[in-house]
Computed example of a mutant assay.
Amino acid sequence: MIASPTDTAKAMEAVSQIPAIELQNASKSFGVVQALQQVSFAIPQGQVVALLGPNGAGKTTAISLMLGLRRPSHGQVRLLGHDPRDRRVRSRCGIMLQESGVPLNLTVSETITLFRSYYPHSLPLTQVLEMASLKKKAAASVGTLSGGQRQRLYFALAICGDPDVLFLDEPTAGLDVEARHRFWEQIRAFVQQGKTILLTTHYLEEADALAERIVLIDHGQVRADASPAALKALVTNNRVTFNMSEPLQPEFFAQLPVQQLELGEHHVSLLTPKLETVLRALFTQPVEITNLTITGASLEEAFFHLTKDQSEQEGA
């Protein structure tokens, strides 16, 4: 019996509704150490998610479970609806690690060609070189590449199999600002093709720029799972910066509800939960205030707010 177009469309829709990544009460212990504790979240296909957390929070353990490199002690992990160790889904994933073991004597083109052979449906070599900005280095041996160029090679190896799910571990470490922004553009282009991306990074500006959603892990548990905007809204502080014609004394600011005060001779930067109180006090001073800028909390400030609160609760 031949399936009708309607049946085919329904089947494709059902497949697209299967989460790309799903953890259900996943826990992982190493002896007496509980690395993950009942972690649950699902990532729909086509979404960009940043997995953040302090060092030792459990991020690496969580990713190792998603990739099938380790099994959960309890709970379940699914990748595209299957066991992560299933060869069918492994061939649909790309992984960019901070350091990959590749032969240093092969050229860039030879290395990418080798990795392309591992996948059933790989991208053309020329397209991979273009996407990774490596066309000019195609004939260069891997051992001669700079740190930034090698990072771009690792990205090329992660995408050469045209993966449906892409894992990026600190992808822009060692890149300069210009190269980092070019990389962001490549990621956005990949997302437009419906790819799912899980990103870990210590550059919180990068997570804010790329991710639709942040999953924050601390002490082996999910502390927050929301959009960057929603996480920043949890912090009531405002960042205030300005220049002043004459220096103000530290004693003046000591009487105000300010945090993270950076006081220069003619420049001030501070955080405050009571913006109106601080501004009212400033404008009563006999100094000229210029270049006044007021912004909401950054993702970095939200990150520290959430992890600091948890540390204080556990220390109480």
Rank of each mutant, 00 (worst) to 15 (best):
E300M: 06
A50M: 08
N243V: 14
H121F: 00
L275N: 12
I2P: 14
D86S: 08
N55T: 13
Q24C: 14
Q127W: 07
Q186A: 15
D83F: 08
P72M: 07
P5T: 11
K137R: 11
K28Q: 12
L80H: 09
P72W: 01
K28V: 07
R87W: 05
K274F: 01
L23C: 09
I294C: 14
T236A: 12
V48E: 02
V240L: 15
S4A: 05
G148A: 02
A9P: 08
E206L: 04
Q149R: 06
T113L: 02
Q38K: 06
V258Q: 08
R180T: 13
Y203G: 09
S64I: 04
V191Q: 15
V102W: 06
M244R: 15
V89I: 12
L106V: 04
Q260A: 15
N105S: 12
R180L: 05
Y203M: 09
K59P: 08
V32P: 03
T113K: 10
V128W: 04
L23F: 11
L97W: 04
P171A: 02
G46C: 03
N243R: 14
E99G: 07
P103Q: 15
E170G: 05
G143E: 13
E312D: 14
Q24W: 10
H305T: 13
E205D: 15
L125S: 03
P247Y: 01
E312G: 04
I112N: 07
D225F: 02
F41E: 11
N25I: 02
L97H: 04
F155R: 10
F155H: 06
A230T: 05
S27G: 08
A35W: 01
F283G: 14
V15H: 08
L198Y: 04
S133P: 06
S16Y: 00
E288D: 09
V235Q: 14
T293C: 09
N55Q: 10
L248Y: 07
F30N: 15
V77A: 03
V108A: 13
G161N: 07
S40F: 03
C160V: 07
R150H: 09
G220H: 01
T113F: 01
Q193I: 01
P5Y: 09
V165H: 02
L271G: 15
S227R: 10
I197T: 11
Q192P: 11
A189F: 00
R223T: 12
Q310H: 06
I112V: 13
H202W: 06
R87D: 11
Q151E: 02
I217C: 07
D208L: 08
M66G: 09
Q76Y: 02
T172F: 00
L69V: 15
I159W: 01
Q24E: 12
T284W: 05
I2G: 05
V48Y: 00
V177D: 04
A3Q: 11
L145F: 05
T111N: 13
S29Q: 06
V48C: 07
G94Y: 00
T236G: 13
L23T: 00
R223I: 15
E13V: 12
Y203T: 14
F190S: 01
E288V: 08
C93L: 06
R78C: 10
D162M: 00
L292W: 09
Q76P: 00
